[in-house]
Write a protein that binds this DNA or RNA. Sequence first.
DNA 1: CGCATAGTTGAACGCGGTCAACGTGAGTGG
DNA 2: CCACTCACGTTGACCGCGTTCAACTATGCG
Lengths: 216, 216
Amino acid sequence: MRGQVAQALPNRDIVPPGKLVQHSCLVAEGLAGRFSQLPDGMRQITAIYLPGDMCDLHSAMLPRVEWALQALSAPLTYLKIPHEELLRVSRTHPAVAEAFWRDCVVDASVIAQWLVSLGRRSAIARAAHLLCEMALRVESAGLGTRAAFDFPATQLHIADGLGITAVHMNRVIRSLRQRGALAWTGRSVSILDWDALAHIGSFDDGYLEFRPFANG
Amino acid sequence: MRGQVAQALPNRDIVPPGKLVQHSCLVAEGLAGRFSQLPDGMRQITAIYLPGDMCDLHSAMLPRVEWALQALSAPLTYLKIPHEELLRVSRTHPAVAEAFWRDCVVDASVIAQWLVSLGRRSAIARAAHLLCEMALRVESAGLGTRAAFDFPATQLHIADGLGITAVHMNRVIRSLRQRGALAWTGRSVSILDWDALAHIGSFDDGYLEFRPFANG
DNA sequence: CGCATAGTTGAACGCGGTCAACGTGAGTGG
DNA sequence: CCACTCACGTTGACCGCGTTCAACTATGCG
């Protein structure tokens, strides 16, 4: 399967919302995010993608995407894979079709966990839960360990993912740091006390299934 | 494709969380919901399913579900369809595999919209948005019109879907009623002023794509 | 050096939670 | 037919988490 390499900078749409797209994106380096925006300018990030994640696979089935894709780090490098190719392979190889289907299902179960966080967890618990999730995904993608990994997103980005303000995000991080659970300087995160963090976020890793395109 | 008819009552798991399941469920009559529960007892509904919706199709790919399925109405009638059957058909008919894949993608895009609601909309906007969504889904499933439809879920259920308390849900409904947007008595909802409701919830129907199993 | 973006802190406000009652309607059994 | 129960709905008073607004610092880049 072939694709075209591309790069992007933060705060600029890779894929604009409401348009028909002809390709999906495989993250190669950096972080990508899926953004929704309300009429009043409020922004919500609904997914974060690591290198190896296929971040737009949905669009092969629904080419009119309702959200934007943006880089969360500079630079972001990704591979544009035409839907045509994806569908050709999946139609001739049922096992591939199932792998694509499964990837979308895993993606949905992560979103569902985020939904639980935004609906029923406090701000600090949301942050702890997200950090646990990112740590395990980074680890399973071979990009670092759960104890220390590179995380180039800004506090504002994470706030937009957790449904809180950047101001409160800052206070939450300080609180986690003061509890000795975390060190977060610049773009590198260290989880100093995994058990404490997992407890604060009531984190249960069951929903993070094998991601077919991870370890890419 | 054959299945086994079953019935269920509210507040009892149809599918318990953490167990392996061998079948998916097609709602025949009533409302079903997907529930997540936190260790402290907090509950979040992450999806609501109407008659014609395939509510557990994910489990064909990930048989260990991380959430529960419960009835939101009494009675709920549904069809249990073995994964074995679903996979057999999808493996021999690529078009069916794609239909299943697409259904999961549509489901995910609805969850993503809920995520935006919980993250960035006020309680009253969340309620308005959900009601608009349900109205259109009811209408497209041929179960009523967007102006008047049967909605047997309790206020507590909706509150658990919107990430608010039952007390506040009640106040929100009253506020929508006072604004002349809504009438909600017992199990029947009337949307008196669609434009007002859609405006309050900043509702845009673009994400509600054709659902393969709707109109079932 | 000048400008933009990100991070940090404080003070005051308000949305929605919490707690506690009470109302209401359906179902049940006397 | 009434008494009882139980789930759901409704309302009021108070409280606290997170927002808002504003200011300032730090960092990076032309």
